Lab assay of single mutants.
Amino acid sequence: KAKLLVLLYAFVATDADTICIGYHANNSTDTVDTILEKNVAVTHSVNLLEDSHNGKLCKLKGIAPLQLGKCNITGWLLGNPECDSLLPARSWSYIVETPNSENGACYPGDLIDYEELREQLSSVSSLERFEIFPKESSWPNHTFNGVTVSCSHRGKSSFYRNLLWLTKKGDSYPKLTNSYVNNKGKEVLVLWGVHHPSSSDEQQSLYSNGNAYVSVASSNYNRRFTPEIAARPKVRDQHGRMNYYWTLLEPGDTIIFEATGNLIAPWYAFALSRGFESGIITSNASMHECNTKCQTPQGAINSNLPFQNIHPVTIGECPKYVRSTKLRMVTGLRNIPSIQYRGLFGAIAGFIEGGWTGMIDGWYGYHHQNEQGSGYAADQKSTQNAINGITNKVNSVIEKMNTQFTAVGKEFNNLEKRMENLNKKVDDGFLDIWTYNAELLVLLENERTLDFHDLNVKNLYEKVKSQLKNNAKEIGNGCFEFYHKCDNECMESVRNGTYDYPKYSEESKLNR
């Protein structure tokens, strides 16, 4: 008799109507990190870190770059004969040098303040090359056809396309004075040089004057150069050297050249137009028929994500570079809930034993079982409120962090190594801060989002509990077992918050 009662009780308990509160689960393989956990499985997430590029040089917003090819900045601007293909260059979106560009200054020497000139050019998007001192009329008392084997072109001695090597005419090199007034309405880049012979005999042979000088002056520039005559090792078949100089001439300003020898005179100059998204990159990537809004030396990035880990040097509207390998923000729920887990921000989770793959029309909802059958029903209101809140948060985070910009490298010469090392340390410090901030932001927001979901499920549970009161009992896994019969209409009233407690209280009292 006792065995019969136990079996009867078990049958009745199993047959009781139930309603459970749960949440969506799926077959997603997404994982995120939080402050407290690593690799948390979630139903949905968004990636904030771009880690792919196309490996190509592309047009930037429809404008092609200027590819210097086998030449570098120095060779292009001075007019190395091997860089003749660059003479027609007028406009570009950015400038590309190759790491091993070999054609710079063909006659050995240095372009002074080269690093600063590169910085200036990094904001130039177009130029006009014009004859600042016409070759045939500007130097009537001097020979202007100086050439050298060091600047050979097609097997013949030649010289820079933008400079003139002035030497004596006959047996004399009379003092020369020439000036140019900038009437271009924009900055003009003027380049010139000073020749330093290897011996007094060479000085006399070329310029006749043993104590020659070169003077260059404008409103913002004033220097006097004296040739340094000295024996030097042979470089590119030359014992002599040429140093090259430049200045930016403001609109309306005048530049005056005065010399008694050794002047490498300007022939062509450049009127410059600035462009905020221009820059110089060093890259071996090849040019393709493609378009982008962000270019790196590795390749083009076409992404609206706020961060990238491809390269710190970028041109155009680019994500911020960070050292992170993963920045994924959760938008959905835990896919593998932890039992009795309390989140960092106070939300209680884990009283549900598992997510439901059968509930596909919402994030949170119900599963019921009664004599009429069983089924899932999503709670659309709480789901939609959660979707709206999380979507707004993700968009806000992306908008705040998605300050796209150009980031170019800084140039230092060989004598500025300590400054370069200090600059690298400062840049590394800023990069570490950006990386830390980005990672911390994602970790915190992921923790908040998961706790937010847990709290929403808990609130749904409490909503049902407050309606049923003692007409049902909690069975410990997020479910309630009714003390009365609850048909589909009754189940719907529980879900929509209109459950009639008094209607079922007498039946429940008897069954309790």
Results as ranks from 00 to 15, higher is better:
Val6Ser: 01
Trp92Asp: 14
Trp246Thr: 03
Arg232Asn: 08
Leu87Asp: 02
Leu4Asp: 09
Tyr173Ile: 07
Ser215Trp: 11
Ser93Leu: 01
Lys38Phe: 02
Ser101Cys: 10
Thr177Leu: 14
Trp165Gln: 04
Gly69Gln: 14
Lys168Gly: 14
Lys3Met: 08
Asn262Gln: 00
Tyr114Ile: 15
Ser179Lys: 10
Lys168His: 11
Lys70Met: 09
Asn80Tyr: 02
Asn39Cys: 06
Tyr213Asn: 04
Asn183Pro: 00
Gly75Pro: 02
Ile281Cys: 07
Arg224Asp: 05
Asp201Gln: 08
Phe257Cys: 01
Asn103Lys: 11
Trp192Asn: 00
Asn103Leu: 11
Pro140His: 03
Cys71Gly: 03
Thr98Tyr: 03
Val12Ala: 14
Tyr173Gln: 03
Ser137Gln: 08
Leu111His: 08
Glu119Arg: 10
Asn39Glu: 11
Lys38Thr: 11
His53Asn: 00
Pro65Ala: 15
Leu77Gln: 02
Ser172Arg: 06
Val147Arg: 14
Tyr244Met: 11
Ile256Cys: 10
Gly275Tyr: 06
Tyr173Val: 01
Leu249Pro: 01
Pro227Asn: 14
Gly261Glu: 13
Ser138Ala: 15
Asp33Thr: 09
Leu68Lys: 02
His196Cys: 04
Ser45Asp: 06
Met242Lys: 04
Gly146Arg: 10
Val40Met: 11
Glu187Asp: 15
Ala105Trp: 00
Pro140Glu: 13
Ala212Thr: 14
Asp237Trp: 06
Asp33Trp: 07
Ala259Phe: 06
Gln67Arg: 13
Lys234Ile: 14
Val6Lys: 12
Pro140Asp: 06
Pro134Leu: 02
Leu263Arg: 00
Leu163Tyr: 01
Ala269Ser: 14
Ile35Cys: 12
Ser215Cys: 03
His142Asp: 01
Leu163Lys: 03
Tyr114Glu: 04
Thr254Ser: 14
Lys3Gly: 11
Leu60Gly: 04
Leu206Val: 08
Asn222Thr: 01
Tyr244Cys: 02
Leu48Trp: 08
Val40Ala: 06
Ser28Glu: 14
Lys61Val: 00
Thr74Ser: 10
Ala105Tyr: 00
Leu87Ile: 14
Ser218Pro: 02
Asn54Gln: 10
Gly170Gln: 15
Lys156Thr: 15
Ser208Asp: 12
Leu66Pro: 06
Cys106His: 05
Leu164Ile: 10
Asp237Pro: 00
Asn47Gly: 00
Leu164Lys: 07
Ser179Gln: 13
Gln203Cys: 01
Lys135Thr: 13
Asp113His: 14
Tyr23Phe: 13
His239Lys: 00
Thr167Trp: 04
Ile35Asp: 00
Val181Gln: 11
Glu37Arg: 13
Lys59Pro: 00
Ala41Gly: 11
Leu49Gln: 08
Glu131His: 04
Asn145Gly: 13
Asp110Ser: 10
Ala16Glu: 04
Ser91Thr: 13
His153Val: 12
Ser150Glu: 04
Leu7Glu: 03
Lys156His: 10
Leu57Gln: 09
Ser218Glu: 03
Gly22Pro: 12
Leu87Thr: 09
Asn72Gln: 11
